[in-house]
């Protein structure tokens, strides 16, 4: 019985359901950030070798980069629709 992995799994299930059910777009992005943290931790705990750590780091940095791009685009679309 590994309590730690079970706890992270429960957290990621809860956050995944909240990503699916929320209507606001910005709050959906915040929940997605928490889900990325949980999946990176699960990858590092599943593979106990240095290559697993490299995979978790690359996954986390890549997902942060695409979240950055999505938030930037949301700001640009809001500015464009608010002006005209």
């Amino acid at each position: 019985m590994d309590t730690l992995v079970l706890l992270i799994g429960v957290i990621s299930f809860v956050v995944g359901l909240r990503v699916f059910l929320t209507r606001n777009r910005v709050q959906r992005l915040l929940y997605l950030c928490c889900l990325n943290f949980a999946i990176a931790a699960l990858i590092a705990l599943y593979i106990k070798s240095p290559m697993g750590g490299v995979a978790a780091a690359v996954y986390f940095i890549g997902s942060t980069l695409s979240s950055n791009a999505i938030a930037h685009t949301i700001g640009k679309v809001q500015r464009l629709e608010g002006r005209g």
Partner: peptide, 16 residues
């Protein structure tokens, strides 16, 4: 390994 779970708990209290 407890710090990994602790960090996920901490980010859950802020973003989740």
């Amino acid at each position: 390994k407890y710090f990994i779970g602790g960090m996920v708990m901490a980010i859950f209290t802020i973003q989740g």
